[in-house]
Design a protein around this nucleic acid. Sequence first.
RNA 1: GCCACCGUAGCUCAGUUGGCAGAGCAGCGGUUUUGUAAACCGCAGGUCGUCGGUUCAAAUCCGACCGGUGGCUCCA
Length: 726
Amino acid sequence: MMQVRLPDGSVVEHPAGTTVAEVLQSISARLAREAVAAKVNGEVIDLGTRLSGPQVELTALTLNDPEGLEVARHSCAHVMAEAVCALWPRTKLAYGPPVENGFYYDIELDHSLTPDDFLAIEAKMQQIAKENRPFRRCDMPRAAAMEKLRTEGNPYKIDNAQRADGDTLSFYVTGEPGTGHFEDLCRGPHVPSTGRIGAFKVMQVAGAYWHGDASKQQLQRVYGTTFPDKKALKAYLDQMEEARKRDHRKLGQELGLFFLDPLVGPGLVLWKPRGAVVRRVLESFILEELLKRGYQPVYTPQIAKLDLYRTSGHFPYYKDSQYPPIFESDIARKLNDLWEATTARGEADGFSRDEKRLIDEIGRAYPNVGQKLCEKKLQPGPGMGHHNQQVVRELLAESDGYLLRPMNCPHHIRVYASEAHSYRELPIRIAEFGQVYRYEQSGELSGMTRVRGFCQDDAHLFCTPDQLLDEVAGCVDMAKLVLHVVGLKDYRVRVGLRDDSDKYIGSAENWARAQEAVLAAVKSSGMNYAVETGEAAFYGPKIDFIVKDCIGREWQLGTVQVDYNLPERFDLKYIGDDNREHRPVMVHRAPFGSLERFIGILIEHLAGAFPLWLAPIQARVCSISAKSKEYAQWVYDVCRAAPLRVELDNSDERIGSKIRDAAMMKIPYILVVGEQEAADKTVNVRTREGKQYGNCALPQFLAACAVEIATRGEAAPGEADQTPPT
RNA sequence: GCCACCGUAGCUCAGUUGGCAGAGCAGCGGUUUUGUAAACCGCAGGUCGUCGGUUCAAAUCCGACCGGUGGCUCCA
């Protein structure tokens, strides 16, 4: 006999080979009816699985268990696939897993699915669900299964099978095997029958590359979701709709914070006066922190000679995501092309076709430059790459192109290098709200969260290897501080290390040291973090702070990066206590990341209702009638001089309308003033949420605001509560 | 960059099978003088994203481009 231990600790006995469903039936008919799968010894399995072993731990899973729902979503993906195949028999199925909040199925189909098709798909799915056919698992020896798949000729399934582990492959038939019912290669597990997949909906369709590889064929990814019942599905859809109301693009428009103008260019943010206030206040806040922590603000240009980025390695490696360089002359452009061609060849033997063509073109159009190329001995031979690049760079120095800066670090490095440094000065922390430009792919642009021009609250720290850990820890601390101050609590920390791809610069030793430092710092910070390889910057590993937007997409905000490589590329030095030259280590860090992205996320987090210290307009004075206009004007003047960011509504509208307008603009305090307030020199305070504080002498209101602003709302959150008893 | 969808007044959106371009809000002018989330009347406002094509006739059908949205890929 086999002992089956249940979650409540009780044990039931059954002969080995009893199915999960039979065990559940013996315990409770209701449990057997509601279960969609089970967890046995920690593994989620079908209800039809036969149990074995002297002892098993068994937990039934229903649609209300997250793991049960995940099984149902996976099964729902099968049902959707069957529906699509029934409607478009040419469909080739690729891959259909459950994901957070639903599932998808990648398919190859010459007909592009549109939202109009969703109804037909759902109708077919309903029919399949109604038929309530069983999901039957069929295990086959690998060889036979592969043979079967080859006969069927679906390359994606063959590929999936080749990637699967084990000697047997499993198929799931929804219905009876051999009767033409839908069948799919799948590891399972699944719900017992197609009637058990809950309340579902086909959500959207999108392109997706096979294996996520942009060079491979693009498939159609059909997204769907399912919930335990219609009510839960509706609740989810309502919640999604509610979340979209917080979208920073929508609120940015409604609250007049910022806009993007096609005439200016995609991904280029224009901050309107109200959005500019939020940014300016946040900048002031961070600037104050920087000064407290010994940072030295600088100003540097937003453009620089291309050669600066040849040295740093940004160019041409990230050429595709930079605005094209600006060349003052044709010869500069041609020489740069030649440099790129030479760089592309590397140390290989023989001029490439591009090199030959360019040398020829330059020789013909600019004989004197061509002659110089000869004199300085541009070489076709192997191992001459570096020499050739230097030859071209020397000639380019006379008339180089300019690049809109994609990063601030090269400029800050030049600031550091502009004078000699002693170890006594270190660490040197150079800070700047640095505007950068990156030519992001058009499909990536998104409101303020992914843009082509943005401002980083950037700084570069130059320190000795001994100081590195403390400096990194200090940066991590500051990144945590900014999130705390604005109340962004829901974030995760990612440690990005390198993988073995060739996109990274610098030596293995440098990388090892840098990664060690990053890991040590993050460990000592006591934060939860996830290490992800392949997520490092090209010059070094990093610690990123990541948050989600209103529709669940993740965005990197703050970042701290350790860099041994750029100091080497720029040959940075300091004089040590041994009177010899040493190489400093760099830390790149930006606690906000970019002001654009940070504020975009912040708008969503706050649903546009900024706390008093950040609110673009902190109060609006609303007069009740023409009789109180003059007093309202006086209140407004006093508030503005306080200073408070205040507006005056002296229109002829009714007070209800004025309050509605102010509340919809999410102005924290609405000061209602009528004849009564004018008589006793008070303001009647109410909040955008509708809370009424009653009458209050104006100086008292202003004093309360000053406290709330100075403490950034932490002293008495949202309460200007100094309302005197009246 | 790729796939799909969308683009009508400052904003949010209607616009049937191709047949004179509409509403609400905002704006402007009046009337109203108001007590805590929308007073009333009137006026004005649009090359229907752009360019090309089909047609007697295009906001509507077709194509290209521009811009936006969702996803994929990318993200120093």
